[in-house]
Design a protein around this nucleic acid. Structure first.
Length: 824
DNA sequence: GACCTGCTGCGGTTTG
């Protein structure tokens, strides 16, 4: 095959391309072009729809055209640019977006400068076509890139790659997918030391670190795109704020207001925090407006892909009046922005709020706007605080993982299954990543040993001798079956045990957790995919259902993330509370909240950045302690367990615990002297780690965490796709490995990793320590309550909910509230 | 008159 016509666009071509459409490039686009053409790497910080794709794509073309960027021509045709996206749907849209400017450059797409798509969805015939004739640019995912590294000829086929663009880098930065990509980038850099790498990122609290991680410490520049559009954050106010619930999270009391908002604009997105909440809101909207059937839709991660794609195309084509969704629509679908974005319940973080706001109002001059729909009174406070933080640009950081050995182990097998490796060379390459830059010799040797013979405890099993050493020292996967199994398990996303939901003799609806279906009996009804369904039968990981009508039903619950309130948002809330403490109530939300906060102040006190609120109460239930550190529910769970344990050490007591994002409650049925809290001895950070590990059932938590690690490290084979093997089985074998290692291989570093991940990611030990330190220096505002305060009340509800059925809970609430009303 | 909790993402069955 002959080399195709030289393709040498220049800066002037890029300018002309814009001029041809009557536009001029923005300054930031020119900056990116020049930098890329000169061979610089960097990070472009820009919002969607701001021209970032054109900036880096034309920059990439200019770089490829620069004479010094020519890789040794090992093949007539070779892939020279990679575009990595975290989502398949985004990848497909990106291919189209990249082809368009090509067609407009220099009188038509030059031959040999084509763009192709390669993800898990790509057909094998298309893959073969690409292998025979590699596209100049390939749009793909981190996982597919790793799969490409696992092929024997990877070093040859990828040697010509000289530009890599990583889209939505903020989505990958803080997780193991990002680490997997870091390793792949290190490999590409070794193949081509002049590799130019650019990341695209949305608003992020740690942009410089994001750049550092992407480039593994090499110099690069951060370019800021066009200034983000004007941002509007407001809230729907309850009609009678004095009557607004103090607790709860569904928010249906605001239904009428939401209906009104949807009605008033051509298109809306209604974001909910959980899938079950989205199901219930969708149903409630339909009940309120039956005429909206067909005009509103539901979208979340457990719905079947076909259903979701139908909804997505409905949005794109402007056919839907509203979509009720979860973060499944945060990014990915390249749709024209909608008119209105509503967020039901706490936004939990500033970055999430900005992301969602960005889904609205892209028309020139129109601000991005997001409207918060509070589900209980204190969320009005969060709304005001979220606006403060967003406007001040106080956005959360994403912390890059450190040395996840499961990902390293997977990568070793990937490379061994591909071209093979020599340990010294690969170690140097692995250390050329942010995640493993401090990897010590011991951990490296452990990882090698683990892929060679499964460590000390698995030596007897051939399946765990995945890598063998050639006569000449090359490390390879020799067994074709093991290599195939490995390729099937590449990736770091570990899913829960789910069951398919299908109509009898018909369409797939989506998936729900095995355990939920397990609790249902034939004939039971549940709400899913926006429909009332009746369970017909369960067979081989599929729940067959038919339509039902009218009857009371359950809503599936999924075990999802926990999303604690972020530090940034919590700080903003405390700042607002401090203002209120001084009698300053600014903005409509604070004004609406005033009666409640004044009541809180009357019966107790308001906390602030320097003031810790502590309340105690003697009730029919027993002796209560309420503490409000505003550190997010995860940290509160840790704090509450810690306090409970330290208290119990002094005097035996049985304490029950309740937490939310603002604080926690300890309750004892027998008298407790809360005085020890007052003297702060409970808040010591001495022996913190040991005490936290003791107080929570951390062994159990770590074991659960270990399932994911064992999967990523390749200990567990997830089974063939479609095969009816439950994930429950995987959990069982994961615990088996856990026990074997604990008994026979205590030095197994994957056990350490599981414990570390629990501490760092689940218990947020750093945040917990910071909270303790802050509490110890804060001025305590201590009140002995006569009745629950507005802040304490939600914690009591939270605790009761766990023990009581729904009906009993509402009776109980009614009594409590009646008491309160009498007192008021 | 006060209620419904917990997000997202990818990949894969054998061949050239």
């Amino acid at each position: 095959m002959s080399r195709t016509r030289a393709f040498r666009p220049t800066l002037a071509d890029a300018e002309r391309w814009f001029a041809g459409r009557g536009q001029k490039p923005f300054a930031f686009q020119r900056e990116v072009w020049r930098a890329m053409r000169a061979g610089e790497s960097g990070l472009l910080h820009a919002t969607t729809g701001s021209g970032k794709t054109l900036a880096v794509w034309l920059g990439a073309l200019l770089r490829l055209a620069a004479p010094e960027s020519d890789a040794p021509p090992r093949r007539a045709r070779a892939t020279r640019a990679l575009w990595i996206t975290p989502m398949r749907a985004l990848a497909a849209d990106t291919v189209l977006a990249l082809r368009e400017p090509l067609a407009g450059l220099a009188g038509g797409a030059p031959a040999g400068c084509d763009v192709a798509l390669r993800t898990g969805d790509t057909s094998s015939s298309e893959r073969q076509r690409q292998d025979r004739s590699p596209p100049a640019a390939l749009v793909t995912t981190p996982e597919t890139l790793s799969l490409m590294l696992s092929r024997a000829d990877a070093d040859t086929t990828l040697a010509a790659v000289s530009v890599v663009i990583v889209d939505e880098w903020h989505e990958l930065l803080g997780n193991k997918r990002g680490v997997q990509l870091q390793l792949a980038l290190a490999r590409l850099r070794r193949l081509n030391p002049g590799l130019v790498v650019w990341g695209l990122s949305a608003t992020l609290g740690n942009l410089d670190e994001a750049l550092d991680v992407l480039l593994a410490g090499r110099p690069g520049r951060v370019v800021r795109g066009r200034r983000p559009k004007r941002l509007l954050v407001d809230a729907l106010l309850p009609e009678r704020p004095g009557r607004f619930p103090w607790a709860g999270h569904l928010g249906l009391t605001m239904l009428d207001a939401v209906v009104g908002e949807i009605d008033a604009s051509p298109s809306s997105l209604v974001f909910c925090n959980t899938r079950s909440q989205a199901e219930l809101w969708y149903q409630a909207l339909l009940d309120a407006r039956p005429d909206w059937a067909g005009a509103i839709a539901l979208h979340h991660g457990s719905l079947d892909r076909e259903v979701r794609e139908w909804v997505e195309s409905g949005i794109k084509r402007g056919l839907l009046k509203a979509v009720v969704c979860t973060s499944s629509l945060d990014l990915g679908v390249d749709f024209a922005p909608v008119e209105r974005v509503l967020q039901v319940g706490s936004a939990k973080g500033v970055a999430r709020l900005l992301q969602r706001a960005g889904r609205s109002g892209h028309a020139p001059g129109r601000p991005s706007r997001v409207t918060l729909v509070p589900t209980h009174a204190l969320e009005l406070l969060e709304a005001a605080a979220a606006r403060d933080a967003a406007l001040a640009g106080r956005v959360e950081a994403r912390d890059p993982p450190r040395q996840p050995l499961d990902v390293l182990v997977q990568h070793l097998v990937t490379i061994a299954a591909g071209p093979g490796f020599r340990p010294d060379a690969l170690l140097a390459e692995v250390r050329d990543t942010h995640a493993y830059r401090d990897l010590d010799e011991g951990a490296w040797r452990w990882a090698l040993d683990f892929v060679l013979r499964g460590g000390p405890s698995l030596t007897a099993y051939p399946d765990y001798r995945r890598v063998v050493v050639d006569a000449d020292g090359a490390h390879r996967v020799a067994d074709a079956r093991l290599a195939r199994r490995h390729r099937m398990a590449i990736g770091t996303i570990v899913s829960d045990a789910v069951m398919q939901v299908r109509f009898v003799g018909g369409a797939r609806l989506g998936t729900v957790e095995e355990s939920f279906i397990g609790r249902l009996r034939r004939g039971d009804c549940f709400l899913f995919a926006g429909r009332l369904l009746e369970l017909a039968r369960v067979h081989e990981m599929t729940a067959w259902v038919r339509r039902a009508s009218g009857r009371r039903s359950a809503v599936p619950r999924w075990r999802g993330g926990r999303m604690p309130l972020s530090n940034e948002l919590a700080d903003a809330v405390l700042a607002r509370l401090a203002q209120a403490g001084q009698g300053r109530y600014e903005g409509p939300e604070m004004k609406a909240l005033r009666p409640l906060l004044e009541r809180q102040q009357r019966v107790s006190a308001l906390p602030g950045p320097e003031a810790l609120l502590v309340e105690s109460l003697r009730s029919r239930e027993g002796w209560h302690l309420f503490v409000f550190p505003f550190a997010g529910r995860q940290v509160h769970l840790g704090l509450a367990s810690l306090f409970a344990m330290r208290l119990a050490r002094r005097a035996p007591a049985t304490l029950s615990i309740s937490v939310n994002d603002y604080g926690f409650e300890l309750l004892s049925a027998t008298p407790v002297d809360w005085q020890s809290v007052r003297d702060r001895s409970l808040m010591s950070t001495d022996a913190l780690l040991e005490d936290v590990l003791d107080s929570l059932n951390s062994g159990e938590l770590a074991m659960r965490r270990f399932r994911e690690i064992a999967r990523v490290a390749g200990l567990l084979f997830p089974g063939f796709p479609g095969a009816a093997r439950g994930t429950r089985q995987l959990q069982a074998s994961a615990s088996l490995f856990w026990e074997v290692f604990a008994r026979h291989d205590a030095g197994n570093l994957l056990l350490d990793q599981a414990r570390r991940e629990v501490l760092e990611r689940e218990l947020e030990i750093d945040r917990l320590r910071a909270a303790l330190e802050r509490m110890a220096t804060c001025e305590p505002r201590w009140t002995e309550l006569q009745r629950p305060s507005p802040f304490a009340f939600p914690l009591m509800v939270e605790r009761m909910r766990e023990r009581l059925s729904t009906e009993k809970l509402s009776d109980r609430l009614a009594r409590l509230v009646a008491d309160l009303e009498r007192a008021a």
